[in-house]
C-alpha cells in the first residue's frame, strides 16, 4: 500500500527578465495525504493548477518532496527511490517518453533492458503488450511515422513493460479514439481487479474517473479539499435534490402552478423549464408530493426521476466555490 502524508513541494523559480533575475519560492503542493491500495484505482482530480502533476512526480520519485513522508509497502520511498522505481511505472498523456527514431518493438526492448526484464520473458511480454494496445502489426515501423494515437498507445505499452505493482496514469487516454479508450479502460480495470495492481489515475474525462475509480481525491491550490467515492463526494457537495419531470403537456402556467404549490412543502424549491423537461431543485425529498401534485392538477406524467449529481457537477460546483 502507498501511504503519503503531508507531502509538500516548493520550487525555486527565477522571475523577471535579464541576467539578474530574482529568485522566488513557489509552493506547488502544500499538504497532500493520500493512500493507494493494491487492487484499487484511485483518482486524482484537481481544479486549475491544483498540483496533480507535481504530486504524481513526487509519488513516482521523479521529484523529491520538500516535506512529508511517503511509504510504499512499508518502504521509505524518499530514502530508497531506486527500490521504488523497480515497482512502479508511469504513463503520461501525449507523445513523449518514447524514442521516435526507434520502432515500437525496439522502444519496448530498450525499456525492457533498462528495467532489467529477463530476456527469457521480454519477447513474449512485448508481443502481449503490442497486442494489448493494437500495434502488433506495426511493431517494426519507426515511431516517427506513427499517428498521435499510436504513439500514445505505445506509451501505454512502455508503462507496463516492467509489470509494475503500482501504476501512475496521468491523462492516459488523451488523443485516443473511443474504441482504444474503452479497451484501455477495461484493461486498467483488469490490472487492478485481476492483477492486484494499485493505480493512480488523473484524467480530464470525469466519466472515466467515475467509471474506474474506487476512491477519489480532489486537489485545489496544492491542498486536498475533498476525498471519497464519487457518490460520497456528490452527496457531500450537493445538499439539494434535483428532479426531472416530463409531462405530456407543458406550459408556463403549469410551471408557475408547480412552483407555487411545491413551495408550500419547501420554500426554497426552484422550478424551471428546459425544453420538454421541468427541472425541480429542492432541499427536501419531495418526490411523493410532486407525483401527488401532478395527479391533483390533472397532469399526465411521461417521465419522472431524481437526477443524481455527476462527478462533473461536483467538480464544477467545487470550482465555483473555491474561486468565489
Amino acid at each position: 500500500m502507498i501511504i503519503a502524508e503531508h507531502l509538500a513541494k516548493n520550487f525555486q523559480v527565477k522571475v523577471g527578465k535579464g541576467i539578474f533575475r530574482e529568485k522566488k519560492s513557489i509552493e506547488a503542493v502544500k499538504d497532500i495525504s493520500l493512500q493507494i491500495e493494491k487492487g484499487k484505482i484511485v483518482g486524482l482530480l484537481g481544479i486549475n493548477g491544483a498540483g496533480k502533476t507535481t504530486t504524481i512526480k513526487m509519488l513516482t520519485t521523479l521529484l523529491a518532496p520538500s516535506a512529508g513522508t511517503y511509504f510504499m509497502d512499508d518502504m521509505d520511498a524518499v530514502k530508497y527511490p531506486m527500490e521504488i522505481k523497480k515497482r512502479i511505472n508511469m504513463i503520461a498523456g501525449g507523445e513523449r517518453m518514447i524514442y521516435w527514431r526507434l520502432t515500437a518493438y525496439e522502444n519496448l526492448w530498450y525499456y525492457g533492458q533498462i528495467y532489467n526484464v529477463p530476456n527469457s520473458i521480454l519477447k513474449q511480454r512485448i508481443e502481449e503488450l503490442l497486442a494489448l494496445v493494437g500495434l502488433e502489426g506495426k511493431q517494426n515501423i519507426p515511431v516517427e511515422t506513427f499517428s498521435k494515437g499510436m504513439k500514445q498507445r505505445l506509451q501505454i505499452a512502455r508503462g507496463l513493460i516492467n509489470d509494475p505493482e503500482y501504476l501512475f496514469l496521468d491523462e492516459p487516454t488523451i488523443g485516443l479514439d473511443a474504441v482504444v479508450s474503452k479497451e484501455l479502460r477495461s484493461h486498467i480495470k483488469f490490472l487492478a481487479q485481476e492483477k492486484n495492481k494499485g493505480i493512480l489515475l488523473t484524467s480530464h474525462y470525469m466519466r472515466e474517473i467515475e467509471e474506474l475509480c474506487d476512491y477519489i481525491y480532489i486537489l485545489n491550490d496544492g491542498c486536498l479539499i475533498k476525498q471519497g467515492t464519487a457518490r460520497e463526494l456528490a452527496a457531500d457537495t450537493f445538499n439539494r435534490r434535483n428532479y426531472i419531470l416530463k409531462l405530456y403537456e407543458q406550459s408556463d402556467d403549469i410551471l408557475a402552478r408547480l412552483d407555487h404549490n411545491l413551495r408550500q412543502y419547501d420554500p426554497t424549491t426552484e422550478v424551471s423549464g428546459d425544453g420538454d423537461c421541468i427541472s425541480i431543485n429542492s432541499s427536501e425529498n419531495i418526490s411523493l408530493e410532486l407525483s401527488r401534485l401532478c395527479t391533483q392538477e390533472g397532469l399526465f406524467i411521461r417521465e419522472m426521476y431524481e437526477k443524481e449529481p455527476e462527478l462533473e457537477d461536483t467538480i464544477i460546483k467545487l470550482s465555483k466555490e473555491v474561486s468565489a
Binding site: 531506486m82 508511469m90 517518453m97 524514442y99 525499456y111 528495467y115
Partner: peptide
C-alpha cells in the same frame, strides 16, 4: 529535449552503464 528524460529517470538503472 526529445521528451524521454522522465521515462529514463523513472527506470531503476545505474547511470555508469548508460
Amino acid at each position: 529535449r526529445e521528451g524521454t528524460l522522465e521515462s529514463l529517470m523513472l527506470a531503476p538503472f545505474r547511470r555508469v552503464e548508460y
